[in-house]
């Protein structure tokens, strides 16, 4: 049962990450998600300080706001300070993350929160941390329920507005010219990335969540030429990595989240080689076709 819960948690992180990650990498914003995943740390700590426990709903709201602030600052320094985008990312997220680190160490004494937990997470503890209602009823593992909620939020935001996300990702200036607000959908996407990061940080940590956001979509990108297939495929790769990663961790008795991300990377490597091979054989076939046609 515990292994099922852990795999399900990993899969949920992967599916949430995959859906958003497809849009991120097509917008060439993969590293912005890295920035957000670090920058939400002060949001997490402040939300934690306000509530007596890690109150999940508030934490998601706080993180969403910090995530939007992060993207806003990145854009602001880039446009008004003429700073290169990557430099602007570097300045913004290290600064916010550093504040988070100070807050964590300052409150480390009296909290269930510490650097290890925030940075690396511990998915193995998910099954032993259930939500218990005031009447004593056990609702189920907290991380699993929170991630499920986040997935619902993502689906509610993406499915009805798929065409707006599609358009603003492909051609933002055409979108603006036709009256579709590119910045609105940009900030909605960034908020979703932020809440996904926060919801995942207890289980996989703020660093590895980036692997779940970027690696499965990058793998799927190699194989498909339609966005909706890319999203489905990347969810598949994410779930596969979660399952195989769990058993790898079990076999080597190591970090589960680390094993899941390692498998995701290996899957990418294998797919990369296969995609290159397919491309090469297709090119050879095309050339043969051409030479036949010319005869």
């Amino acid at each position: 049962m515990d292994s099922l819960i852990i795999i399900a948690t990993g899969s949920l992180v992967a599916v949430c990450g995959s859906i958003l990650g497809c849009f991120l990498i097509l917008r060439k914003m993969a590293m912005v998600s890295d920035a957000i995943s670090h920058a939400v740390l002060p949001g997490i700590v402040i939300a934690f300080m306000l509530g007596s426990d890690l109150d999940s709903a508030w934490m998601l709201v706080g993180a969403g706001l910090v995530g939007v602030l992060t993207t806003f600052l990145i854009e602001f320094f880039h446009q008004h300070g003429k700073l290169q985008t990557d430099a602007s990312i570097g300045v913004t997220f290290t600064w916010l993350f550093a504040i988070g680190v100070i807050l964590v160490t300052y409150y480390a004494g009296d909290a269930h929160i510490d650097q290890d937990c925030v940075l690396y997470g511990e998915i193995a503890y998910v099954p032993i941390d259930p939500i218990i209602l005031s009447n004593g009823q056990v609702l189920g593992p907290k991380a699993l329920i929170v991630l499920g909620g986040v997935l619902v939020i993502i689906l509610v935001c993406i499915i009805p507005f798929y065409k707006e996300f599609f358009l603003t990702t492909f051609d933002p200036s055409f979108a603006i010219a036709t009256g579709v607000s590119a910045s609105l959908w940009h900030y909605v996407l960034m908020s979703l990335v932020s809440i996904t990061t926060v919801a995942s940080f207890e289980s996989v940590g703020a660093i590895l969540v980036v692997a779940f956001l970027i690696v499965p979509p990058a793998t799927a990108y190699l194989l498909t030429n339609r966005l909706h297939y890319m999203i489905l495929l990347s969810c598949g790769f994410g779930i596969l990595s979660a399952i195989l990663g769990y058993y790898l961790a079990y076999a080597i008795d190591g970090s589960i989240a680390g094993a899941m991300a390692t498998i995701a990377g290996l899957v990418f490597g294998v797919v990369f080689i296969i995609a290159k091979y397919l491309e090469k054989s297709r090119r050879i076939a095309e050339m043969e076709e051409l030479s036949l046609a010319s005869k």
Partner: peptide, 17 residues
């Protein structure tokens, strides 16, 4: 970008839709 010719042309209709 992972899109077909038809996908891109249809984008011209999005604001009307």
């Amino acid at each position: 970008f992972p899109a077909s010719v038809f996908d891109v042309v249809l984008m011209g209709r999005y604001s009307k839709i």
